[in-house]
Design a protein around this nucleic acid. Structure first.
Lengths: 151, 151
DNA sequence: TGCAAATTTATGTACATACATTTAATGTTG
DNA sequence: CAACATTAAATGTATGTACATAAATTTGCA
């Protein structure tokens, strides 16, 4: 369905405004689908993303600063998302011996097993989850990268 | 900058996964720019969007249900965003006489004047705010609309 | 050495999101 | 008309986002 119909706004000021709104709307649409997929595993999207970064580091630890650096939304509050993961025993926090200001965060066995389950469930499989073919995906990546190329 | 470099992840599973992440990242980037622009007027993005819908209805009122229907993020809590706008005297709430379950929400003179200031400031002007030309914007709109065309 | 500056994480507050539940008014149906 | 379902909005609770500030540690330099 075209964005005009999705939000019942037949006229936009110009193609730019329409693209901006379309981008935000489509991103929300995608994030809601992902959140629904993670929900069955007791995870929110930010929690899943942090677990995935920790798995990428495993068996090395990550600091909060590293998590922020790799997160999609760099302004979010990694400390408190780690709080939730720690409560669920999916990660551990220990003071970094080399720099006692920093905190070493590690994914636990339970965390790795949970991610394994998410993988096996196929909720994140690309095929069939998207109406664009690979070439269109490449075009989209090109346009998005170019869009941010300002200032 | 390419998304690979923005989030320091050199390899993606496939072009699909890369496009998904790119879409969410770019949408966040755009929303943060917009939020910064609204901040000078004492508004958040959701508050601005609701004011804009109310201006579109003016001088007719809108109900909460109508706001939800037109909002970009349909799962957000319109009631409480209207609370904030009412506190700032940018909107009024009155029980709808025809259906006393519903609430008539109207933008005030102060609300209209504030939107006028935002317009005049040019913070939302498209030109110069984006690195894509009009044809690329059209391509982007096409790809985003098609992407959601599933199920 | 000693002390100010920088770094790293945590915390406080306001606002927003997600979803379940409540409250009040209206519709519907026997 | 009474009982029940439906509708519209508000509220409760947990989580996340945005941004400012605090606390602890380390660094650097006079």
């Amino acid at each position: 369905m075209r964005i005009e119909d999705e939000i019942k706004q037949p006229i936009f000021r110009d193609e730019y405004q329409k693209a901006f709104i379309n981008l935000i709307y489509t991103s929300n649409w995608l994030q809601q689908r992902q959140a629904a997929a993670f929900k069955g595993f007791g995870l929110t999207s930010p929690q899943f993303n942090i677990l995935r970064i920790l798995r990428g580091q495993h068996p090395l630890p990550a600091t909060v600063a590293l998590l922020i650096d790799r997160m999609l939304d760099k302004t979010s509050n990694a400390s408190r998302i780690v709080d939730r993961l720690e409560e669920k025993k999916l990660v551990t926090r220990t003071v970094c011996p080399a720099n006692r200001r920093a905190v070493d965060i590690r994914i636990t066995k339970a965390g790795l097993e949970l991610l394994e389950q998410v993988d096996e469930s196929g909720v994140l499989a690309s095929d069939g989850n998207c109406a664009l073919n690979e070439d269109e995906m490449r075009q989209l990546n090109f346009l998005l990268d170019k869009m941010r190329d300002i200032e």
